[in-house]
Design a protein around this nucleic acid. Structure first.
Lengths: 111, 111
DNA sequence: TGGCATACTTCGGTGATCGATATATAGTTC
DNA sequence: GAACTATATATCGATCACCGAAGTATGCCA
């Protein structure tokens, strides 16, 4: 376990890129849509995380394009990023399942 | 979204207490067992988190006992903590499921 | 006697995220 | 045409959860 765990924001960014390459603002919108508006990814978090994730090789620069005179910089998930995301998602799912089963096992804590 | 999200360590602590009241060292052991040894909760993280979670009303002091001349301070999950854990676990499970389904939708990223 | 497991305390460091500010274009509403 | 919202990226100081390490102490086992 020297491996550093993914924070939630990083997880959501990788998840956003798992469906298709997206640009920064598109990632923010996807994360918001993904969670029914519950999770708002801050720009300060996003652009910092994008640099870091690219540095770790989990995402890659895809291409740039200009739409309505505005630059869009697209990123895609790398193979390493996909593997990492899959691993984290499985771990996360196991933890969630365990927590829910423990809560359900009549300890009277849940109404 | 003013609500602060649970970090992984805090989630695992609440999950450990979801089955029964435990003392600090017992929580560390449970988290380790929960994850087949993959997640090691550090003592510095634990005792800090315990104070914080108690301050937020998510866990409560249960009782103290002395076993083999060593003090054990037990904590239990509060009703608020159980609700919060359930909510976080459901959100986490949804996110994990979505990420996995996106990865599986033939983007060629996963071998 | 030395080592390992148990058990809690404290505290400095780090880094991911927050929150705010900045710049710029396009479209909408009054 | 002024004001506002949405789109789009950049930057930077502050915060705080978590890490990592060291300390104190007891009991058990070889």
């Amino acid at each position: 376990m020297t491996e550093v765990r993914l924070r939630e924001a990083s997880f959501l960014i990788l998840s956003a890129l798992a469906s298709e390459p997206r640009h920064g603002y598109g990632i923010i919108k996807d994360v918001q849509a993904q969670s029914d508006g519950a999770v708002v990814l801050r720009v300060g978090t996003l652009y910092g995380a994008l640099d870091r994730l690219a540095g770790e090789g989990l995402i890659e620069f895809d291409h740039e394009e200009v739409v309505d005179s505005r630059l869009r910089r697209y990123y895609r998930l790398s193979a390493a990023g996909a593997g990492r995301l899959a691993q984290e998602a499985q771990r996360s799912a196991r933890q969630a399942e365990l927590a829910l089963s423990r809560l359900a096992t009549g300890n009277g804590l849940l109404a």
